[in-house]
């Protein structure tokens, strides 16, 4: 095992920290949603890198070589997560559009009529 095996995990940590930084410190709502998308990519990369097993093949039965296959659960999870991610991002962006129409701003400092 060399350090290269940890490369995906290092990337995951980098992506999550970048995304969290954007969500915490950027006031532009569109940028915040972009930050969430970055965290999401980190999560997907994490799951895919967990699923990798050296020397294993993809679990497709048709004319597969007689070696071990990886468990497809993390891949299914990643696909689900990507689909859900698209849905949530679209919903959030449409909320931002409506917010812009009502408040005339996409700054999170202005979107605070509900407070206290």
């Amino acid at each position: 095992m060399n350090w290269f095996n940890f490369f995906p995990l290092i990337m995951v940590v980098t992506l999550v920290i970048m995304g969290l930084y954007v969500v915490l410190f950027k006031k532009n709502l569109i940028k915040m949603i972009m930050g969430i998308a970055i965290i999401q990519n980190g999560a997907n990369l994490f799951l895919v890198s967990l699923a990798y097993r050296e020397g294993y093949v993809a679990p497709i039965w048709t004319s597969a070589p007689a070696t071990d296959m990886v468990l497809p659960t993390p891949h299914a999870l990643t696909l689900t997560s990507i689909v859900i991610g698209v849905a949530t991002t679209a919903l959030m962006l449409s909320f931002v559009i409506m917010l812009k129409k009502h408040y005339g701003s996409i700054n999170s400092d202005d979107a605070r009529r509900c407070r206290e």
């Binding site: 709502l29 909320f95 409506m98 917010l99 408040y103 009529r113 509900c114």
Partner: peptide
């Protein structure tokens, strides 16, 4: 607008 804000 407040409903959209809360939902967002």
């Amino acid at each position: 607008g407040e409903s959209v804000e809360a939902a967002l």
